[in-house]
Amino acid sequence: MSLDYVKFAPGFEKFMPKEYRDMVEHGPFGKKTTVSQMGSFKEILEEHPMCAGCAMTLFIRLAMISFPNPEDTITVGTAGCGRLAISQAAIPFVYGNYGDQNGVASGLSRGLRLRFGDKPKDVVVMAGDGGTADIGFAQTLHSWIRKEKFTTIMLDNEVYGNTGGQESGMTSQGAVLKMAPLGKKFEKMDMVGMAKVAGCVYVATVVPNNPRRVEAVIKKAVLIAREVGPTYIQAYTSCNIEYAIPTDKVMEDAKNVEDNRYKFSEYISEEAKQYLAERYGYKEFLPKPAAAVTQA
């Protein structure tokens, strides 16, 4: 859990694969990398077995680039498509049994705080809609109610894509899927509302058709989770296989869905705003000058 773990063991440099050497010499560790620099440095994420054109992969790729301190970050995941890519990255990945990723992350986060004290070590949970809202619902909600300080990211593809297309709690009402041929009868779960009620201090919904926005949202969520409280990001990451979206139309679908039912939303508690402004210099959350307040 430091820059040392991404260095070569003495004498082994020439035996390492090219990808590993590129990662050590030109990776994002110890530097500030941004979405606008993509394509000019070696990314944390490597080749992975996810489907061509998968929007979830795009989101994971953007998320990996957006972590404020990748060398001090641990990702936690569970069964589902996402873990196929998240595990192919040069940062530690912990695989929880199905649904217990937020429980695992709770222990991990507390343990890291005990071991490293004030030095921030970020724990980021990335799990699908099934892992977060269906099978892992109890553990997710309880970790929020306990105010565990880590980030939960839901990769919401609105279906069980790995197992043939069953409906999940996050599937939209009326959606017809291979294993839900009559259409889903119930409404999509309001996880954003539940996150707010359960005490998350930062809640955002985002669609990966705006990379800079994804970057901003992830940075804020991870930074706030260091000291203020639990944070939650819900990302629409369509399943182009189960929803039969042609791969070259995935971003068109993302745009339509964002316009119609997945609008960008962001909730930040006052305490979190103050923390971002004072600790990390976020100008938009700085208190307004007295003159501006009077004029308003």
Partner: peptide
């Protein structure tokens, strides 16, 4: 514009 790099789902595929 570098948009293709930012929207490619594969890491280090479209380089600059």
């Amino acid at each position: 514009c570098k948009l293709c790099t930012q929207f490619c789902p594969e890491a280090n595929t479209i380089l600059y």
